[in-house]
């Protein structure tokens, strides 16, 4: 396989520059997100992780360069066609008052439904599977307001699972969750990736969890890309210093053998 074929398969950026008005946040970034793998975007607060993720979902138009999905410029893909191929869960979404879990998840089917077409058996099945995948099958008729933080986060994930796309982008899906729930969410994304071959891209803050659950890491620093590659290559003492200004030791995780960060 040549370099080109690899990047044609999935999501990639090409000389991508992202800016808010005159403030450039990401400059001239070219990278490839491996297809059918789990990738995490890491970096300090305000370095542009959410901005990059939004640009990958076409929520922000690039100031320069391109985002490509399957070789096509993402800006040229029809809106609904894109929504069938790529889903994004933004950072801390807010649910409408009183809405139930099932009603929320059903809205994820919109891109697949015809203009006036009724709710189908297929739609119902996908929603049920999405709810079961996140372990909320029992709580489908509960109002979102009545759920715990972890359950709520899983309801939102079920919404994007119901969208049934081959690429899934999630901005900090584990924030505000306790460690057990963080593991739960990442395991659920991992099993989705393994079972359906879904390409998953997450913005994460926990370096150790990212290293453990990801096949690929994108490490951003205050002045752009620091490193990109498999966790073993990205999580190094030098890279952590460059990205976070963090003096730390990197040792093998006693459970998995993945790199583990131990700050000094």
């Amino acid at each position: 396989m040549t370099e080109n074929e690899v990047s044609d398969a999935g999501l990639s950026t090409e000389a991508l520059t992202l800016a808010y008005r005159d403030r450039v946040v990401i400059r001239d970034l070219s990278l490839t997100v491996p297809d059918r793998r789990m990738t995490s975007i890491l970096g300090p607060n305000g370095c542009g992780k959410s901005t990059l993720l939004k640009a990958m979902a076409r929520l922000i138009a690039p100031a320069g360069g391109h985002v490509r999905l399957g070789g096509e410029d993402i800006g040229a893909i029809d809106t609904r066609a894109l929504a069938r191929r790529l889903a994004i869960l933004p950072q801390s979404p807010k649910a409408p008052e009183g809405i139930t879990v099932a009603d929320l998840v059903r809205r994820g089917r919109t891109p697949w439904r015809g203009f006036l077409s009724p709710w189908t058996e297929q739609d119902a099945n996908v929603c049920r599977q999405a709810l079961e995948a996140v372990g909320l099958g029992e709580l489908a008729d509960r109002s979102i307001d009545e759920l715990s933080g972890g359950q709520r986060q899983r309801a939102w994930i079920a919404l994007v699972l119901a969208q049934d796309t081959s690429t899934l982008l999630l901005d900090e899906p584990t924030t505000w969750l306790d460690l057990t729930h963080q593991l739960e969410v990442l395991s659920l994304l991992q099993s989705r990736n393994r079972a359906h071959g879904t390409t998953v891209v997450c913005v994460l803050h926990d370096l150790n969890l990212a290293a453990r659950y990801s096949d690929h890491l994108i490490l951003l620093g205050p002045s752009g890309l620091v490193a990109v590659g498999p966790p073993g290559e990205v999580v190094t003492v030098e890279n952590l210093d460059a990205a976070f200004g963090l003096k730390a030791l990197v040792v093998p995780d006693p459970v998995t053998g993945c790199p583990m960060v131990v700050p000094h």
Binding site: A57, T79, P90, T110
Partner: peptide
């Protein structure tokens, strides 16, 4: 109404779900 139900979830989610 369908677009409305998605806009209600916030602009980013709505756009991601195919709403212009």
């Amino acid at each position: 109404v369908r677009a409305m139900a998605l806009l209600e979830l916030g602009d980013d989610l709505a756009a991601g779900l195919g709403v212009r």
